[in-house]
Design a protein around this nucleic acid. Structure first.
Lengths: 104, 104
DNA sequence: TCCATGATTCTAGAAATATAGAAATATAAG
DNA sequence: CTTATATTTCTATATTTCTAGAATCATGGA
């Protein structure tokens, strides 16, 4: 994963409403939730939520599909895992490791 | 970890220069690096770097200590792990899990 | 004490972001 | 075809963030 994409993903999550949306979708699992239900559960105006969902989608953190009139959003869990991998990779190359032990 | 602190940490990492600084410090390990060396390695102006380091420090992602005239910064690895835990907790409560298996 | 070095703080302007109201789009149902 | 529902897009404004230059602070050595 490239740094630019990681920054975009982190920026997408670095906002109160979006982080709440993402975490709600994480608990919802692969089936996801329609935008309207997200808006209701989190008490966010529909247009504002749409703005935030577009951020999350652009960052690859959620997917969208249509079912009838509803647009269903679901967390793209693998994307977060890639971001996490980027953050933690190459830990302590110049020193012993920082996970508590003193082994290199 | 509380959501507000998580948002602060994510926002601190959601910027190109700061993410590069943090990753450099991760590779440097617990001994950290002096600000001047970070500035040199990443080609960031001293005052700009100081601005970014203060963000990372406020977010709890780095620690600072003085040695002579140098201020040594080191990655606070545990903080990132707490953020990661917050992002990934409560995965798929309403559905079967999203890690590949179909178990709840 | 005086000077050099390492780093931060202050200030200001440019750029990006968040929010809300109004209007528009897509789908479904009568 | 008309209406209702679900959601997005447009527009404008308020706020935050990033960057750079100048000034300041802290430490160590001559």
């Amino acid at each position: 994963m490239e740094q630019e994409a990681v920054v975009t993903a982190l920026a997408a999550l670095a906002q109160d409403s979006r982080l709440r949306v993402f975490r709600l979708l994480v608990t919802a699992g692969p089936d996801g939730l329609p935008a309207g239900q997200i808006a209701e559960e989190l008490a966010i105006a529909a247009n504002t939520l749409s703005f935030h969902l577009s951020h999350l989608k652009a960052a690859g953190l959620v997917t969208m599909r249509r079912t009838g009139r509803s647009l269903i959003y679901a967390a793209e869990y693998g994307r977060v895992q890639a971001v996490i991998a980027y953050l933690t990779e190459n830990c302590c190359r110049r020193q012993s490791c920082c996970d508590g032990t003193d082994e290199p």
